[in-house]
Structure formats: structure tokens, C-alpha cells
Design a protein around this nucleic acid. Structure first.
Lengths: 196, 196
DNA sequence: TACTAATCCTAACGTTCGTTAGCAAAGAAA
DNA sequence: TTTCTTTGCTAACGAACGTTAGGATTAGTA
């Protein structure tokens, strides 16, 4: 394992992410974080302003990555909605698997953000979900997708994807692209065998 | 709203469930819980032994309900696997929607259980997931379901269902049976329109 | 009437929390 | 050589934490 030349601040972010993921934000103490970094609790404040700043940075950085991936995946206007949806799903899975710990924090710990960051975060998440919703609605309107309620379909779809960090372990039997492919298939084709 | 004749202990359980759900177990203080009940923090200990006992009761009660529902839904040996899976999905959704707050705690706060309860809980959850896995495998073996990897399919399926407590609000535009039906359809048939 | 169980209070315990102040060492930049 | 930045320490702050002890009140039961 190469330590690389991460700045001390980045090391703190990284260790905090891992701890917030496994123990939760509220249950992780600064002394615990410091111990994991081999330093004293007070010393951390030479690098950050507050505990919440750590959470804030993790959550909003991930939000940016999700958006960047989605925008790139759904941009191609020449493509029908269904394949663009597939690409968006694959992008979402890529972000999730690239940074599992941060993703888990992003998904579960945002409620410990205090206002106004919390509201701001929820607005971002809603906007992201809207992207999927519109893609599905577009596909449904064009007859490519069967989705009597695009909002419902979008929620279910993202739900399946977002559970991933709770069971995915890097180095397991599935590679991230493999997972992305399987998930997209299962969600788009379903489980039931139909006569075709 | 009828208060009914809930015992004080049940009122505590109920209020604790609501608080653990919205603020998280670790971030909920006994003083906060007491205030929500209109009493002092120390008084709670006339009814319970510890804060963790509250979490323990919530988590294990829900586990029992999930098992009871699944066993009933999947028992009928005359039925093929696919419809039994559908019934199991509907049962799962019923438990989730009947007790949203407790379900959310069950799904997210179990990691704050200390040993050996934590390990015990995880074993229960694994056994529950295995039930779905076997149902899917059975259906796949019989050619009713398309699931190249039943374990993967089971994870994805439960993932879609378990996200429900994060958006479902009682009294919304969907009734619980409606949700169960739609979810089962979407998961079993998928989104993509196929030629049939 | 006396006893019991349920319910809640005040006051405090020891511990841990996030955070700050003040100081020190070390290396890079001037 | 001086200065600045980075990095870390010790010691402590006030606040909040889960929990306990001991006593009071009330309502139901014997």
C-alpha cells in the first residue's frame, strides 16, 4: 500500500470518511479520529475548522461527482432515452464503487449536516433524482420504457443502486463494470421471463 | 388522534423509535427523548434498563415481523416460486409501510448494537436474505425467473424495497398495497419494453 | 386502612464530548 | 540568518452525555 504524498488534510478527510462510514458521524469522536491518524485530538484543528466541516466536504464532493457523471452520460442528444438511462446507471455505479466509503457517508450521514447545508444538500439530491426521472419519462413517452409512474420508477431504480455500498467490497467476485452491467440489465429487463 | 391506552413503556418505545429514525440513535440523547415524552431524563429509567435496550427491542421486534410475514407468504408448496416471490415482496412492503419508523431504525441503526446483539442481529438478517435468495434460485431453476446470479438478484431486490422508508409517507398518493403491487411489477418485469 | 406497584422528581456521579489557547519543533523560503 | 508555514503537543474550557440514588406522589388492591 503506497501512502503516496497525500497532504495531511487529505489524510484526515480519508480517515474521517472511513470512520463516519463504519461507526456513523455522531458516534465518531474527534479523539477516535485522531487516534486512527496517530495524533492528538487538538492537533486536528490545525487543519480543519470543525467536525462538521469534514462531513460537509465529503457530502458535497460526492454530489459533484454524481452530477459530473450523470451530465456526461445523459448529454448525447442523438441517443434514445433508454441507452442514455443505461449509461447514467453505469455512471452512478462507477461513482459508488470508486469511492464506496464516501458514498456510504453521502447516502446516510447527510442528516447530521446543520442548516443551511442540510437544505442545500437535499436540493442537490432532488435535482439529481429529477435527472433520472426525466430520462425515464422521456423514454416512456417515446415508448422505449414501460413506466406508468416515472417518479416511482426513478425512486426504485436509485434505491437498488444506492444499496450497493452496504454490500459491495472492492476485490470481490464482481468487478465494478460487471456490477454496473448486471444492475442495469436487471433493472431494465426485470426478473421474470416473458415470452419473446 | 386517539392516544389509546398505551402503557408508558410502549409510549417510550414509540417515541424513541421516531427520534432514532429522524435523528439517529447516537445523536438522540435521553434528555431529548424525555422532553418529547414530557418527563425528565432520569424518570425513563423507571421503565427501561438502558438506552441500548430501546434499540435492541426495536430491531429484534421488526426482525420477527419480517420473518413471520415471509414464512406465511412463501409457505404454500403448491404455488410456483415466482408467485411466492411476489407474495414475499408484498409481505416485506407491508411490514415496511405498517411501521415505517421502526423499519428505518431496523435498517440503519442496528450497527449501534453492541456485541453480542450485533452479531446476532446480522445472523438474522442474513437468514432472511437467504430466504429470498432460495426463492429466486428455485424460480430460476424452474425456468420461471431469469436470474443468472440469485444472490445478486436477491440483494438488488431487497435493496429496492428497503429504500422505501426513506421516501414513503403514510397518507401519500400511493396506498401500501398499491406500492407493493407496483414494486413487485417493476422488479419482476423490469422497465424496458420487450416485444411480446 | 395498610400495602403495593407505577410513575416521576431533583440532584448529582463520573465520563466524554467538541473545541481552544498557548507553545514548540522542523523545514522551506527570503 | 531570519521569517513563515506546517504540524503537532499539553492542558484545559464548558457543555452534554448515560445513568443512579433516594425520595415523593398517586392509584389500585388486599
Amino acid at each position: 500500500m503506497e501512502t503516496a504524498q497525500l497532504s495531511r488534510k487529505d489524510q484526515i478527510d480519508q480517515t474521517a470518511t472511513a470512520l463516519f462510514r463504519t461507526r456513523g458521524f455522531a458516534a465518531t469522536s474527534m479523539r477516535e479520529l485522531a487516534a486512527a491518524l496517530g495524533m492528538e485530538a487538538g492537533s486536528i484543528y490545525s487543519h480543519i475548522r470543525s467536525k462538521e466541516e469534514l462531513l460537509h466536504r465529503i457530502c458535497f464532493r460526492l454530489a459533484e461527482e454524481f452530477f459530473a457523471g450523470f451530465d456526461q452520460a445523459s448529454a448525447d442528444d442523438a441517443l434514445p432515452a433508454a441507452p442514455r438511462l443505461r449509461r447514467a446507471v453505469e455512471s452512478h455505479v462507477r461513482v459508488l464503487t470508486t469511492d464506496v466509503a464516501a458514498s456510504a457517508v453521502f447516502l446516510h450521514e447527510w442528516r447530521h449536516l446543520s442548516e443551511p447545508a442540510r437544505t442545500e444538500f437535499l436540493a442537490l439530491r432532488e435535482r439529481y433524482e429529477a435527472g433520472f426521472r426525466e430520462l425515464i419519462a422521456e423514454g416512456a413517452a417515446a415508448g422505449e420504457l414501460y413506466a406508468p409512474d416515472p417518479a416511482f420508477a426513478a425512486l426504485t431504480l436509485l434505491a437498488s443502486l444506492n444499496w450497493l455500498p452496504s454490500w459491495y467490497r472492492p476485490g470481490g467476485s464482481f468487478t465494478p463494470p460487471d456490477i454496473a452491467h448486471r444492475l442495469a440489465n436487471q433493472l431494465l429487463f426485470g426478473l421474470e421471463v416473458r415470452g419473446n
